[in-house]
């Protein structure tokens, strides 16, 4: 490698390919990839509509589907931020249960105090998760697996294992009324949480930190990003989402019991995140993708109901879908990495 002056003047042509036809098909494929899941959702919806003889794609039924998935949706939004940092929270379902029974246990104190206690409990659980993962250096799945048990145990202890009724209508604080006559309040809360999470991830500095920490924690650290604080932030936000999910649950069912943490769909809040295309390895994905993921799984489960599949096998289908989807994405990621 002898360095002559001529060689020094020569600037190597790097990465400025002319947009030939190959480039265009590449771009088209990128666009297709971007909206592939929306397309899947539409196809599923149309299929459901045919199957139900036109009663699926009515405003009324669409609102039903959204309402059914609101609790999971809020949890999945919280889970998205955590997974973006290459973490995972297995405890969101249990925290929901804990927050729900705590809120109702303190309902005598009035709407806001009990609500605040519920939120506080959720965020506290999230804080513990965050501290364990960041400063405690405990692998995320172990830390949150422990929290899954602790929160569930506490929920049983507080409620003594019984269902607690929402006598003072804490959950109805949101109101039974529907906005514009047909948008239920739970759906509005879900939308608000989604917008807030989107705003955090895309507009606020912690959003940048989240993507950086998930993308490459060592670079993030060397660039002066507060990695530990970012981790604590996402797990606390996850805990808060679980507490909000708890209120939505109470609003919907009028009671809460500790076993709601075991409901498969709630414990599997990572399912829609993964289906939506957020990478489990962190750093890529987003909140809106998760919403598409929630809706795909929601429509799928509706289709299964329409086809007369009972409740339990749906768990199997969901588990299988996660494995399949993760497999697909990992495959794709590896292929693109090899290409580089």
């Amino acid at each position: 490698m002898s360095s002559s002056p001529e060689l020094l003047e020569e600037t190597p042509a790097v990465h400025t390919p002319a947009p030939g036809p190959k480039e265009q098909t590449y771009k088209m494929r990128a666009v297709l990839q971007k909206y592939a899941l929306v397309l899947v959702l539409l196809v599923l919806a149309v299929f459901a509509n045919i199957k139900s003889e036109g009663s699926f794609l009515t405003p009324q039924n669409i609102m039903n589907v959204l309402t059914q998935n609101a609790v999971l949706g809020v949890l999945a939004v919280g889970q998205t931020l955590i997974i973006l940092t290459a973490g995972i929270d297995l405890s969101l379902g249990s925290i929901t249960a804990l927050a729900a029974v705590t809120t109702l246990t303190f309902q005598g104190l009035g709407f806001f105090p009990s609500l605040l206690i519920g939120f506080g409990v959720g965020m506290l659980a999230g804080l513990v998760n965050g501290l364990l993962v960041s400063y405690g250096r405990v692998p995320a799945f172990i830390a949150t697996l422990g929290m899954m048990q602790v929160a569930m145990g506490l929920a049983y202890v507080i409620s003594k294992g019984f269902s607690i009724d929402d006598k003072d209508h804490v959950g109805l604080l949101l109101g039974e009324d529907k906005l514009f006559g047909f948008v239920p309040s739970v759906v509005i809360v879900w939308a608000l949480v989604t917008i807030i999470a989107w705003f955090i991830t895309k507009k606020m500095k912690y959003g940048s930190y989240i993507y950086a920490v998930g993308g490459n924690p060592r670079t993030a650290k060397a660039s002066g990003i507060p990695v530990n604080r970012t981790l604590i932030f996402v797990y606390m936000f996850g805990g808060l989402c679980a507490a909000i999910g708890a209120i939505l649950y109470i609003n919907r069912y009028g009671n809460a019991e500790p076993s709601i943490g075991n409901i498969a769909t709630l414990s599997m809040s990572m399912a829609p995140v993964v289906v939506g295309g957020t990478s489990l390895f962190g750093g890529s994905g987003g909140v809106w993708k998760t919403i598409v993921g929630v809706l795909i799984l929601g429509v799928l489960s509706n289709i299964m109901v329409l086809m007369g599949v009972p409740q339990n096998p749906q768990q199997i289908v969901q588990g299988a879908i996660i494995i399949l989807v993760v497999f697909m994405f990992a495959w794709q990621e590896r292929r693109s990495r090899i290409r580089q």
């Binding site: 995972i88 297995l90 799945f141 498969a264 414990s267 599997m268 990572m270 993964v274 489990l280 339990n312 096998p313 749906q314 768990q315 199997i316 289908v317 969901q318 588990g319 299988a320 996660i322 494995i323 993760v326 497999f327 990992a330 495959w331 590896r334």
Partner: peptide
């Protein structure tokens, strides 16, 4: 598949429970 074991076995947990 070079997948993280916790996610595969977590999904497996629901598959088994569901079955």
């Amino acid at each position: 598949g070079s997948l993280p074991p916790f996610i595969v076995t977590f999904a497996m947990m629901f598959v088994c429970r569901g079955l």
